[in-house]
């Protein structure tokens, strides 16, 4: 098995009862790659992610991380879920600490990373607030901070910016790019926003309708920072849009 690949997906198939969600999907993700997965709503993007984290088990096929069968016990991975998943009983700061405390990191290391995240995400004034006291987008920032603070080598993001206002989304898109470059994390970013996918990804994976197969892989070789008005950007965006509208 090649060392170059962070994730190998082989003949991945998933049924929920009679519902066929993923159909024989195979692809690889390179180490340190930023991959976006796009596809129509309800096509099985989230299912794919939940298979990687072993929240679900595949019906057929297998997922490998670093050449081993995917297992959150062995691999340092983090997930940003689509739904607001901040613990309502913890303050912002304690939510940021949560994952690291589960993994029993040293206290001063946790302090350092949390402080960094609070600064990075502009959460200073919310430190001691509870999630229900915050707006949707602020609550989602906690989740992003919680995931990045883990310094995962595989970060899975499931439409993390879906709930956010546009300004903050642009800001956090740049932020995720910055963190990705800094940490060398492999990122799988699921979205239904095509512009977002082309803006972020090195490679865009387009899925078909359910049962999902890979429609096409599109390499995005545009230098960063990317401009949404750049003709090359527009060309790729239109191409991806066409592929999704194809059926």
């Amino acid at each position: 098995m090649s060392e170059e690949y962070k994730v190998k997906v082989e003949h991945l198939t998933k049924y929920f009862g009679d519902l066929h969600v993923l159909d024989d999907v195979s692809f690889n993700i390179k180490k340190g790659e930023f991959l976006c997965v796009v596809g129509p709503t309800g096509c099985g993007k989230t299912t794919f992610l939940n298979l990687l984290t072993r929240i679900y088990m595949p019906t057929k096929g297998e997922l490998y991380i670093d050449g081993e069968r995917a297992d959150p016990k062995k691999h340092n991975l983090s997930v940003v879920f689509q739904e607001p998943s901040a613990m309502p009983w913890l303050t912002v700061e304690k939510n940021l600490r949560f994952g690291m405390e589960i993994k029993k990191l040293a206290k001063d290391e946790i302090d350092r990373r949390v402080l960094n995240m609070i600064k990075l995400l502009g959460l200073e004034q919310f430190r001691d607030r509870y999630p229900h006291q915050l707006s949707m987008s602020t609550a989602q920032r906690i989740i992003i901070g919680r995931a990045f603070a883990m310094q995962p080598d595989l970060l899975l993001m499931d439409e993390p910016y879906g709930q956010m206002d546009i300004k903050l989304r642009f800001y956090l898109e740049d932020e995720v790019i910055r963190l990705w470059k800094e940490m060398g994390t492999t990122v799988v970013f699921i979205t239904h926003n095509i512009e977002e996918a082309v803006y972020l990804a090195e490679r865009v994976l387009i899925l078909t309708n359910k049962p999902a197969k890979i429609r096409e892989e599109v390499n995005v070789d545009i230098p960063r920072p990317r401009k949404v008005s750049d003709p090359e950007f527009v060309k790729i965006r239109n191409h991806v849009t066409e592929q999704i509208r194809w059926w």
Binding site: T53, I55, L77, S85, K103
Partner: peptide, 8 residues
């Protein structure tokens, strides 16, 4: 699920 992902 959050717990599962963080390997609690």
């Amino acid at each position: 699920n959050v717990g599962t992902v963080f390997n609690a």
